[in-house]
Every structure is written in C-alpha cells, then in structure tokens.
Measured scan of single mutants.
Amino acid sequence: KLETFPLDVLVNTAAEDLPRGVDPSRKENHLSDEDFKAVFGMTRSAFANLPLWKQQNLKKEKGLF
C-alpha cells in the first residue's frame, strides 16, 4: 500500500514540491480512503470505472492533476 498524505500536501502542488515517492500523475493514489471519498464523492472503485477522460477532468477540477 502506498503512503498517504493529507489533502493540502497534494492539492495544487507542483511535481517538484510533492513528497518523495509521489507520482505527480497519480496524486489521488496517495489520499486516504476517507479523503478520496470526500474529494471525489465516490469510492476508488467507482472512480476507476469512469472513462479516463472523466477521471482526468475530475482530477483537474479538484487540483489533483
């Protein structure tokens, strides 16, 4: 399991300012399950079932792209 970080560490943070080991294209993977659901309004599995373009739009909207 990946290390999780608080939302404010990941949202609207440039790649070079992210904690070590965080993939800038997969910031959402480093949210706790609770934060993930609070941000996206759905579970990880529901998010994973969305088309890629919709996932990317949601990530942009939430500052996690």
Rank of each mutant, 00 (worst) to 15 (best):
R26E: 06
F36L: 03
L52Q: 11
N29R: 09
K59Q: 03
S25F: 15
E3C: 13
G41V: 05
K37E: 15
V9E: 06
E3A: 10
Q55L: 01
T4L: 11
S32N: 10
F5W: 13
V22H: 03
N49E: 14
V39A: 09
L18K: 02
G41A: 13
M42H: 03
V39E: 03
K62N: 15
D8Y: 12
K54P: 00
L52M: 13
L2H: 14
K62D: 01
V11R: 09
L52W: 12
R20I: 15
D23F: 03
Q55F: 00
K60D: 07
R44P: 05
A38E: 12
D23R: 02
N12F: 07
L52I: 12
V22E: 05
F40T: 01
D17S: 08
L50E: 13
E61F: 07
T43I: 09
D23K: 03
G21N: 07
K59I: 04
W53S: 10
M42Q: 04
D33N: 09
H30G: 03
F36W: 03
L50I: 06
L7G: 03
T13N: 07
L10M: 03
P51W: 01
A38S: 13
S45K: 11
V22N: 04
K62I: 10
S32F: 03
R44F: 06
A38K: 13
N29A: 14
R44Y: 05
D17R: 04
F36C: 00
D23S: 04
P19L: 04
V11W: 06
S25T: 15
S25R: 09
Q55M: 05
S32W: 01
S25P: 02
F36S: 00
L31Y: 01
P6I: 04
A46S: 11
P24D: 06
E16D: 13
G41Q: 15
E28R: 00
A14V: 10
W53E: 14
K59S: 03
S25N: 14
S45Y: 14
P24R: 03
P19T: 01
P19N: 02
F5V: 05
G63L: 06
H30I: 02
V9S: 08
N57K: 13
K27N: 02
Q55A: 05
M42T: 05
L58M: 12
A14E: 09
F5H: 07
F47K: 00
N49L: 13
A15C: 13
P24G: 05
G21P: 06
L2V: 13
K62Q: 12
Q55R: 10
F40M: 06
D17E: 14
D23G: 02
R20W: 15
E28W: 02
N57H: 13
R26D: 04
T43A: 11
L10V: 02
E16Y: 04
D35M: 04
E16S: 09
T13L: 09
K62Y: 10
D17I: 01
S32E: 05
K37W: 15
G41W: 05
M42P: 00
L2Q: 13
P51I: 03
V11Y: 07
L64T: 01
L64V: 03
G63M: 05
K1A: 13
K27S: 04
T4V: 13
V22L: 03
W53V: 10
V39P: 00
V22F: 02
S32D: 07
K60V: 14
R26L: 08
F47R: 00
E3D: 12
F65P: 04
L31F: 02
P6C: 05
L58D: 01
F65H: 15
A15S: 13
V39K: 01
F40P: 00
D17P: 02
S25G: 10
K1V: 12
E16H: 09
R44E: 03
A14K: 14
L50R: 00
K60S: 12
K62S: 10
N29F: 09
E3G: 08
D8F: 12
T43V: 10
A46L: 10
V39M: 06
K1T: 13
F65E: 13
D23Y: 03
G21W: 08
D35V: 08
D33G: 06
N29E: 14
L64N: 02
N49P: 01
Q55C: 00
L52R: 12
G41K: 11
N12A: 09
P51Y: 01
N57P: 00
L50Q: 07
N12H: 09
K54Q: 13
E61A: 12
R44N: 04
M42G: 00
K60I: 14
V11K: 09
D23E: 06
R26C: 11
N12Q: 08
V11C: 08
M42C: 08
K37D: 13
R26N: 11
L7P: 06
F65I: 09
S32K: 07
L10D: 03
N57A: 15
L58G: 00
E28Q: 02
T43D: 15
N57R: 14
R26G: 06
F47Q: 00
A15D: 15
S25H: 14
G63K: 06
R26V: 05
S25Q: 14
N12P: 03
T43S: 13
R20H: 15
P19F: 02
S25E: 15
L31G: 00
L50K: 03
N57D: 14
E34G: 10
D23Q: 04
A14P: 13
E3K: 07
R20A: 15
Q56N: 14
A46I: 10
F5N: 02
S25W: 10
W53G: 09
S32R: 08
F40N: 00
S45G: 12
V39C: 14
E61I: 12
L10P: 02
L7M: 08
P6A: 07
L31S: 00
N12D: 09
N49S: 13
D23M: 02
P24M: 06
A46T: 13
H30T: 02
K60W: 10
V39D: 00
Q55I: 04
R44M: 06
H30L: 05
F36M: 02
R44D: 01
L31Q: 01
S45H: 15
V9D: 05
G21T: 08
F36I: 02
T13W: 09
E3W: 08
A15I: 14
V11E: 05
E28I: 03
D35T: 05
R20V: 15
T4G: 04
P19W: 01
L18P: 06
K37Y: 14
K62E: 05
N29W: 13
N12Y: 08
M42L: 08
V22P: 04
A48H: 14
T43E: 13
S25V: 09
K62C: 10
A46P: 00
K60Y: 11
L50V: 04
L18S: 04
K59Y: 03
E28F: 03
F40L: 08
H30D: 03
T4I: 14
E16P: 09
A48C: 10
P6H: 04
A15R: 09
E28H: 03
A46F: 10
L58F: 07
P6Y: 02
R20K: 15
L18M: 06
E34Y: 09
G21Q: 08
A38Q: 14
W53A: 12
E28N: 01
L31T: 01
